[in-house]
């Protein structure tokens, strides 16, 4: 069997594991490290339920081969909550009922956190009127477009958008 030893820093904890070269980051997290916060919804990058922060950026862990990310820093929704205190994004999802079955939720939340960093960095999106503009004004349309890589079959979008909006506005005030 083709195996490699890798190191992953997951939610601030270092793990050394030997993995089948076929193992994805998602399966390494779920099956090997017992972290089932990222979910498997499609396994092909078509739903976003597996979203984690990979070296600081949101990414589909189902399409990332674990072996190719030796040494990576990974943050899941589980670790967004620190010392038992939920992350503001998590509290906002609860307050706005931005979820139903909860299966896409950890991915949505990690994605939203990563997305706000991208906005702060001034990245344009498909609905940005002028891609050469310096600053992004985070309209609801921008939130919707930027969150479209996270499917929710329960259809909680109309609550997810205000949940993210509240955190974004709070962040902008700081």
């Amino acid at each position: 069997m083709n195996e490699e030893e890798i190191m992953l820093r997951v939610d601030c904890e270092e793990h050394r594991i030997i993995v089948d070269t076929r193992t994805t980051l998602l399966d390494a997290l779920r099956e090997r490290l017992g972290n089932t916060s990222p979910k498997k919804g499609c396994d092909h990058g078509q739903c976003g339920a597996c979203t984690v922060l990979l070296d600081g950026r949101r990414a589909n862990s189902c399409l990332a081969l674990a072996v190719a990310h030796d040494g990576a820093e990974i943050v899941t929704a589980e670790a967004l909550a620190e010392n038992g205190d939920l992350h503001p994004m998590q509290r906002s999802f609860i307050e706005h009922d931005g979820y139903q079955c909860g299966y896409c939720t950890p991915g949505q939340i990690v994605s939203a956190v990563g997305m706000l960093d991208e906005v702060e960095a001034g990245w344009p999106s498909h609905v940005t009127g002028d891609v050469s503009a310096e600053k992004i004004s985070l309209s609801d349309a921008e939130i919707r477009e930027r969150m479209s890589g996270n499917l929710c079959r329960c259809g909680a979008y109309a609550n997810i958008v205000p949940a993210i909006r509240e955190v974004a506005d709070e962040r902008a005030r700081r």
Binding site: T36, K39, E78, I94, P106
Partner: peptide
């Protein structure tokens, strides 16, 4: 809610 938003609710 807390279990769902952290991904710790066991499916």
């Amino acid at each position: 809610g807390p279990q769902k938003v952290t991904g710790t609710a066991p499916y």
